[in-house]
């Protein structure tokens, strides 16, 4: 039970923010919270949020680990484009689905390992190291698709993006499943703990016997793998690989989701669950703006405004202030109490 309350306390700010945002949207757009069953699948704006959040949520899982090692991965948006292009090319060439999925995932991991080499072996700063693939990646994707939007008509692959299983859209299974597997791997083994140690002080961790280099490699590889899954979802969703636009700026949304989730960019303590709630907050804002009917000129301003409020409430300064107020109240009470007693 104490474990549960401790978890809840850690996630409280994010959950509160999500609830408030959903509440406000449902006031502006009535019917926002209704979920019905249509054509044998769940249907409604809340389901849309869960489906549309899939790419960012997947990226967020990988990004959380990378940020926990005190790194950052700017390349994942481009990796989405690369893996999407690879998947679309293989599908149009008529390869069977398992091959397509395996190769795309493999390409994602290779992209992650490339970042890993630059960061862990050559000791290049992560922001620069991953910037290389961020810039070059779209070019690579363009080369693969030969500069066009590569479309395909394969219903089984398209199901990854728009299909449903037992009434629930498949992208939801994919991101929740990936997050569960990676989350359990981190927390049911010592991996998560070791990654945190590496992020806080790599040298100290190494001296204590942690294989920091291997951990860095795996963090970036997982990030690439998550981006590959996201890339397949994005590509399957529109039945085409758009090298220019697939995953564009999603790396920034993923970083934002991690930060909204309360994981520090300085590395160390991380929470995948909190980051995922962060991703849901971002997608709720996006979907909320779309159903609210505001003119598009306001989209970014509304989004920025909400994010500022959420981040301010979590900022160390505000938390210290709250702590101070609480403490002073308690000491007031305490003083009062002692006075009463002495009287």
């Amino acid at each position: 039970m104490t474990w549960f309350t401790r978890r809840l306390r850690r996630l409280a700010p994010q959950l509160a923010a999500l609830a408030i945002i959903l509440g406000i949207i449902s006031l502006i757009a009535p019917g926002f919270l209704t979920i019905s069953v249509q054509n044998g699948r769940l249907y409604g704006s809340l389901i849309d949020i869960l489906v549309r959040a899939a790419p960012v949520a997947l990226l967020t899982v990988g990004m959380t680990l990378v940020i926990a090692t005190r790194g950052i991965d700017l390349s994942i948006g481009a990796v989405i484009a690369i893996c999407g292009a690879v998947a679309a090319t293989l599908i149009t060439d008529g390869y069977p689905l398992p091959v397509v999925i395996a190769v795309s995932l493999g390409v994602g991991i290779v992209c992650g390992l490339w970042n890993g080499i630059l960061v862990a072996v050559l000791d290049i700063q992560p922001i620069i190291a991953t910037l290389i693939l961020m810039v070059a990646g779209r070019g690579i994707a363009q080369l693969i698709t030969e500069g066009v939007i590569l479309t395909f008509n394969d219903d089984t692959f398209a199901a990854l993006g728009s299909g449903a299983l037992a009434g629930i859209p498949i992208p939801i299974y994919l991101w929740v499943g990936t997050a569960l597997i990676i989350g359990l791997l981190m927390r049911r083994t010592a991996l998560g703990f070791l990654i945190e140690a590496t992020g806080i002080n790599r040298r100290a961790a190494s001296l204590a016997g942690v294989r920091a280099r291997f951990l860095l490699f795996s963090a970036y590889a997982i990030s690439g793998l998550c981006a590959a899954i996201a890339g397949m979802i994005v590509t399957a969703d529109i039945r085409g690989a758009d090298a220019n636009n697939a995953g564009l700026w999603l790396e920034l949304d993923a970083i934002l989701a991690v930060v909204v989730g309360g994981t520090s960019l300085n590395g160390g303590r991380f929470s995948i669950t909190a980051s995922l709630i962060g991703a849901l907050i971002i997608q709720s804002i996006n979907t909320g703006i779309l159903v609210s009917g505001f003119p598009p000129e306001f989209n970014l301003i509304i989004k920025a405004g909400i994010i500022i409020v959420v981040l301010t409430l979590q900022s160390p300064a505000i938390i210290t202030l709250f702590g101070f107020i609480k403490a002073s109240r308690r000491s007031d009470k305490l003083n009062h109490g002692t006075k009463e007693a002495t009287r």
Partner: peptide
């Protein structure tokens, strides 16, 4: 101007 966003926006229009 993109397919992905066109689809996402249309989904919410349909619901709204």
């Amino acid at each position: 101007f993109t397919r992905t966003k066109g689809k996402e926006v249309m989904e919410s229009f349909i619901k709204a």
